[in-house]
Design a protein around this nucleic acid. Structure first.
Lengths: 136, 136
DNA sequence: TTTTATAGTTAGTTTTCACTAACCATCTGC
DNA sequence: GCAGATGGTTAGTGAAAACTAACTATAAAA
């Protein structure tokens, strides 16, 4: 029903893309089962979610089932991941326990708009690096 | 099924309680229809949502249909509203347009845990006033 | 070659939380 | 006294996004 560009991603779609991005930084080869394990979801849920993302043009998959972010998918994943790192770091610096800060960041990353986040980054002069450098 | 104390409020319940709190500061008498108008929901949705809150012990209602927050309800509403004001103010000070800051705050208020919020308030030495003073 | 483990899908269920349609009960004004 | 308006409820629908159960397909192992 939707063409690539008018798809509105919800929180769950953003979570899947973010997981693929993060796992790809660790393993170089990422499959649905890895995403399921990472997010703690049943593999059927992930199978369904990833199919929607493929249909939306955010993901592709090769014959062996390995997942690849498209341009649009990587873009979205990096935006979300940047928010995640910002909020997690912010909370941890405020003295929140790291596991709680992580969990909260996982929700807050979906709650703030791109517009607000950009304004914040500028106002705080936060270092805006791309998410793929310096992360092994 | 649930007694008063083991009810877990979700985002929608928090929104209803917050609306009752805010409307009560403006009007002194609040009914379901006011909440529906304020939130932009159909009155059936609000009727259903408020019933759950009454059953959970967060709200009561008199014979004329006027709503009153219980101790637990007021407590929850004030917690959520404090988060709302914090995030909205924070974004606005960062240069975000007020209407966008408001909308984002409406989501972020549910995304951050009470624990993280308290740590933040302490770390930032944010003035922690009760939500009912100074607001007419 | 048969068995077992791994990866994925199909089909159907559940929960949350919005919606519409239709109805009931007051209260007000002619 | 009846016609509307107002406020609320009942009943049923829909979408998002998780779940389980049961299936297929493939690859490895005995």
């Amino acid at each position: 029903m939707n063409t690539k560009m008018d798809v509105e991603l919800r929180a769950s779609g953003e979570d899947y893309l973010e997981a693929v991005l993060i796992l790809g930084q660790r393993k170089s080869q990422v499959r649905a089962i890895d995403v399921a394990q990472y997010l703690g979801y049943a593999k059927t849920s992930v199978s369904h979610g990833l199919r929607l993302l493929r249909q939306g043009g955010f993901l592709s998959r090769d014959a062996d089932g390995y997942l690849y972010l498209t341009e649009a998918g990587r873009d979205m994943a990096e935006r979300v991941y940047a928010k995640h790192r910002f909020f997690a770091g912010w909370l941890i610096r405020a003295g929140v326990a790291p596991d709680i800060a992580e969990k909260d960041a996982c929700r807050m990353e979906h709650a703030i708009s791109e517009e607000s986040f950009q304004s914040l980054m500028q106002a705080l002069e936060y270092p805006q690096k791309t998410s793929t450098d310096g992360l092994s």
